[in-house]
């Protein structure tokens, strides 16, 4: 039986679009220097927050961002029917430990930096399908947990490549409801893995850009839209290199979403010279969406947003074994 909601090959258009009734964002000490600082709900004063490890801090931040999102609607943990979340760490521990505190049904997700879009699109389907009426989608990352897991011990003196991205210390959470006030998740496109044989773990933007191009192209085809439909198309964390590559790929494919395309990894680190090629990490796009971008939508400055979070599904083990890095991108259309 056809659902009547599927469009084209990979997209879904919701008939009763779920509402984003609340959202919250937390930014780390470095990220707070960005020009968006006012739009974050909470800024971490340091990287540990009195915890005994980076990992515990990441969990604490994820809990905190959910708490803030719920507080805005005077909701408590008991009001949440399902919790969808992910992070970058092995066994997604930050999300698991957060779910331990929430005590609600929990679905843990891993999509690297694309996790926030993955959580929103699954959450939107659960709500619109009539299975649940209220759920929380969240994602977070911490610079030093990622450094030590994917690269080097944090005190190791290494010179970063000019094209390497900075894993964001940040988190974002939002509440999806069947009814209420706020921007709607109107359609989604589930991405597929695109692997262009990129093997440089310092250049994740290059691994993700083809996936972003593929998903955006697919979204426009499936829903019979062009880029003029959106006020802003914002990719996950391609960074400066990935963003340039995406533009080149668009030119090759003849897709032109040029006028209003940007990238969360570039936006978040705008004006922060310590970061070479922009940000990455699932907290980066989560924080930019749930903070500055959704606030723009609540204020009415943005009407139609296409959020395309991109993930480089990189594992140090497979990279060392000579495997290439698979990329993925999921698209979520949010409209007022």
């Amino acid at each position: 039986m056809l659902s009547g909601k599927k469009r084209g090959l990979q997209s879904i258009e919701f008939l009763q679009a779920p509402i984003i009734s609340s959202s919250a964002s937390v930014a780390g000490p470095l990220e707070s220097k960005s020009s968006w600082a006012e739009d974050f709900d909470w800024i971490m004063e340091d990287y540990l927050l009195g915890e005994s490890s980076w990992e515990r801090t990441e969990t604490k931040v994820l809990q905190q961002v959910i708490q803030i999102a719920l507080d805005k609607q005077q909701l408590s943990f008991e009001d949440i029917e399902v919790f969808l979340a992910g992070d970058l760490l092995d066994q997604i521990i930050s999300s698991n430990y957060t779910a331990r505190e929430l005590k609600t049904p929990f679905l843990g997700l891993y999509g690297a930096c694309s996790t926030m879009a993955e959580a929103i699109l699954i959450g939107a389907m659960l709500v619109e399908g009539g299975f649940f009426t209220r759920l929380v989608a969240a994602a977070g990352s911490h610079h030093y947990t990622a450094e030590r897991q994917f690269r080097f011990p944090t005190e190791q003196g290494v010179q970063p490549a000019p094209y390497s991205q900075w894993t964001a210390t940040a988190a974002g959470a939002l509440v999806l409801e069947a009814q209420g006030n706020g921007p709607r998740v109107s359609s989604i496109t589930i991405g597929r893995i695109v692997d262009m044989n990129q093997k440089d773990a310092n250049n994740l933007g290059a691994a993700m850009a083809p996936a972003a191009a593929d998903t955006i192209h697919r979204h426009f085809l499936d829903l019979n839209r062009d880029s003029d439909y959106y006020d802003l198309v914002v990719t996950g964390d391609l960074g400066l290199v990935g963003q340039d590559l995406l533009e080149e790929l668009f030119v090759q494919q003849g897709v032109v979403p040029k006028p209003n395309i940007s990238d969360c990894g570039v936006l978040l680190y705008d004006g922060i010279p310590e970061v070479n090629a922009g940000g990455s990490g699932c907290g980066c796009s989560a924080c930019m969406l749930c903070g500055p971008l959704l606030k723009k939508m609540y204020r009415g400055d943005l009407q139609r947003l296409l959020f395309v979070a991109t993930g480089a599904l990189m594992s140090p083990t497979s990279t060392n074994q000579g495997e290439s890095i698979p990329g993925i991108a999921h698209a979520v259309a949010i409209e007022i």
Partner: peptide, 16 residues
């Protein structure tokens, strides 16, 4: 396609 993309990456990537 992969080779062409690799060339593009080399072009776009900033040099140290």
């Amino acid at each position: 396609e992969e080779q062409e993309y690799q060339q593009l990456v080399e072009q776009v990537r900033p040099r140290p």
